[in-house]
Design a protein around this nucleic acid. Sequence first.
RNA 1: GGGGAGAUUCCAGAGUGGCCAAAUGGGGCAGACUGUAAAUCUGUUGGCUUAUGCCUUCGAUGGUUCAAAUCCAUCUCUCCCCA
Length: 400
Amino acid sequence: MKSLDEQLKIIKRGVVDIVTEEDLIKKLKRDRPLTIKLGIDPTAADIHLGHTVPLNKLRQFQDLGHKVVLIIGDYTAMIGDPSGKSSERPQLTREKILENVTTYSEQAYRILDKNRLDVVYNGTWFDKLSFAGTLKLVSKFTLAQMLEHDTFDKRFKSGAPLGLNEMLYPVMQGYDSVMINADIEIGGTDQRFNVITGRFLQRESGMEPQVGMFTPILPGLDGKNKMSKSLGNYIGLNDKPEDMFGKVMSIPDGIMINYYELLTDVDMAEIHSMEEAVKNGANPRDFKKKLAFEITKKYRGEQEAKYGREYFEKAFGADKKIPYEANVFKWNFEKDEITIGELLKAVNAAASNSDARRMVEQGGLTINEIKTDDFKRVIKKSELPFTFKAGKKIFGTFQK
RNA sequence: GGGGAGAUUCCAGAGUGGCCAAAUGGGGCAGACUGUAAAUCUGUUGGCUUAUGCCUUCGAUGGUUCAAAUCCAUCUCUCCCCA
């Protein structure tokens, strides 16, 4: 095992808060493998980079010789974590949840070391918890205590709905920690309340409380909101390499360093020197390219990352040569001529004819490199093959 | 159990009988400028092969009216106050 200082240096990278650092050091000093917990809500099947932040942290713990327990919250997912949510969330069926888990784990294993990993469903214990047991558990808490959770407090004060089941969420998550005797729980900063509830419950059960380690919430492509599927500002692990690369390139400069720290293994010293360089006038674009490459490589492999880079440079680089051939579409229409509306809908550039019309009339469409702003134009099958570009990002070629 | 307030387009939020497909802001999309960055500016933002046209939409259903997001009835949901 590495020395305490070495461990701390690795562990603390990208972590914004530790509750408490003294407790952490105390545990590490014992020089035996710790149990690190991460709870997963299998509410969405696909993982995006935002999810990888705590997963990366887990991996670091694994590499240091600690044991990771991934808790699949099949029960908690039936409620849905209310943290940061301004309204109630739809409840998922149990089947849907189990279905999500499969897809989820496939992706999570790209980050975690399967050999040092336990995966447990919290249904394992919640299935057995009787109503009497539940009452006993719940009786440890008061309403005032729950209202310390900012999300609850805000909802309560603003008059938004606040379900009793939602208030049970942190309690359940805390109970998970008791059941697996967690030493450390990893989570985003939005997990603070839930993790601290775990500490409380462990203490109540006569256990040594877990340490909470909080990773920042990763901003999405817009640079403002947290990365999430519902906001559409995410980079998915299953995104095509060219998309992954391109999406990274489109993040605001301001969050680039952030991404480096949280999403790559690039040495902190190097990251800081890049930060310096940018301050002194270097073009952030070049560092962003490296970032895009690192990230794509991590999840898609080196070959794919190279492809993503090439694609990007062709499409948006200095001597722009849009790689129309990279996106090939077949003439799958039942007829020999189609309207522009049909074309744009077929390639997902427009949601409706009206939408398509707007785009065309505003000069967003190019066919065979020629701007086409006549919405009434008809495209004949005999014109194949032809290239098109709709807006900045959607382009391709139609072939027979 | 009693009393009160409210539900509007992706979101926030105006609108209280016709001028309402519905102000304004945000977000989205397109264009200019660029580094697929930021900032800024312009246009656009329910659907329909653009139409001084039609259709769908202001929680749901039914009604009044030449005309309803707006009035009435019932219902559903939410919040507040009292118990």
